[in-house]
Amino acid sequence: MSTPPRRRTRSRRDRHGRGLRGRLVPVHVPLSRSRAEQFDDLVLDAVEDLERRWERELAGVEFAVEDVPWVEHTDQDEAELDSDVLDDAGVPLARLVPARREQGQEVPPRIIVYRRPLELRAHDREDLADLVRDVVVDQVATLLGRDPEEIDPTG
């Protein structure tokens, strides 16, 4: 007579027995979003607010987020920053890539915001939101050839 196979109970730990199996927080909870996703949301909030006021001028502008900037170094190992880079003490925070023609096609202007340098300068989430907004406003002002106070009078 054979005994029925034992049912395996579901483990509450990972396969190495060190921690919980699965996510700690449900997906619909804000805590479950990564820092990069939260940063993307801050940039989107700033851009959406500006697009409401400057819809026609910003119609073709692309906005992007990168973790860290790509910086060319010279022989003396000093970073060379282009004039289209918004920087703080030599560390790029954002870059404005103007519209250009590539392979016979028009490439729209692009504003790139660098996540890690901004996160390192912020004390908390509210400070980061303000910093992101200031950087986006600065880059939009440069793109449109206007004063930042004209782009965002509330800032």
Rank of each mutant, 00 (worst) to 15 (best):
residue 31 L to S: 15
residue 75 D to F: 12
residue 131 L to H: 04
residue 34 S to R: 12
residue 124 D to T: 10
residue 55 E to M: 13
residue 149 E to T: 14
residue 57 E to G: 12
residue 16 H to I: 06
residue 20 L to G: 14
residue 152 D to V: 07
residue 135 V to Y: 01
residue 144 L to D: 12
residue 65 V to E: 02
residue 144 L to F: 10
residue 18 R to C: 03
residue 47 V to E: 05
residue 132 V to A: 00
residue 50 L to C: 03
residue 128 L to C: 02
residue 117 P to C: 04
residue 32 S to N: 14
residue 110 R to F: 04
residue 145 G to Y: 06
residue 67 D to A: 10
residue 112 I to W: 04
residue 115 R to V: 03
residue 154 T to S: 15
residue 126 E to W: 05
residue 11 S to C: 09
residue 131 L to C: 00
residue 24 L to V: 15
residue 126 E to G: 04
residue 131 L to M: 02
residue 23 R to A: 15
residue 99 A to E: 04
residue 55 E to W: 15
residue 50 L to H: 07
residue 136 V to H: 03
residue 54 W to A: 09
residue 39 F to L: 08
residue 84 D to M: 04
residue 123 H to P: 02
residue 1 M to A: 10
residue 135 V to D: 00
residue 32 S to V: 11
residue 17 G to K: 10
residue 2 S to A: 12
residue 54 W to T: 11
residue 36 A to C: 07
residue 84 D to Y: 00
residue 60 G to T: 14
residue 133 R to A: 00
residue 121 R to V: 00
residue 104 G to Y: 04
residue 132 V to G: 02
residue 109 P to M: 05
residue 38 Q to G: 07
residue 43 V to T: 04
residue 22 G to F: 09
residue 14 D to N: 12
residue 151 I to V: 15
residue 79 A to R: 10
residue 120 L to Q: 14
residue 52 R to N: 14
residue 86 L to P: 03
residue 13 R to T: 11
residue 23 R to S: 13
residue 49 D to G: 04
residue 9 T to D: 09
residue 134 D to A: 00
residue 65 V to N: 06
residue 44 L to E: 10
residue 79 A to M: 12
residue 108 P to K: 08
residue 107 V to I: 10
residue 123 H to S: 15
residue 88 D to V: 15
residue 52 R to C: 14
residue 5 P to D: 12
residue 35 R to K: 09
residue 62 E to N: 02
residue 19 G to D: 08
residue 19 G to I: 01
residue 42 L to E: 01
residue 18 R to E: 06
residue 146 R to E: 13
residue 65 V to I: 01
residue 64 A to V: 02
residue 76 Q to A: 08
residue 15 R to Y: 11
residue 19 G to M: 04
residue 117 P to D: 08
residue 101 R to Q: 00
residue 143 L to G: 00
residue 60 G to W: 10
residue 74 T to C: 07
residue 57 E to A: 15
residue 14 D to F: 07
residue 87 D to I: 01
residue 92 P to H: 03
residue 134 D to T: 10
residue 143 L to V: 01
residue 31 L to V: 11
residue 26 P to E: 14
residue 56 R to G: 11
residue 143 L to A: 06
residue 81 L to M: 11
residue 78 E to F: 13
residue 146 R to D: 09
residue 2 S to K: 12
residue 108 P to L: 01
residue 41 D to N: 10
residue 124 D to I: 08
residue 20 L to I: 14
residue 70 W to K: 03
residue 56 R to P: 01
residue 154 T to Y: 10
residue 143 L to F: 04
residue 90 G to P: 00
residue 41 D to M: 11
residue 22 G to Y: 13
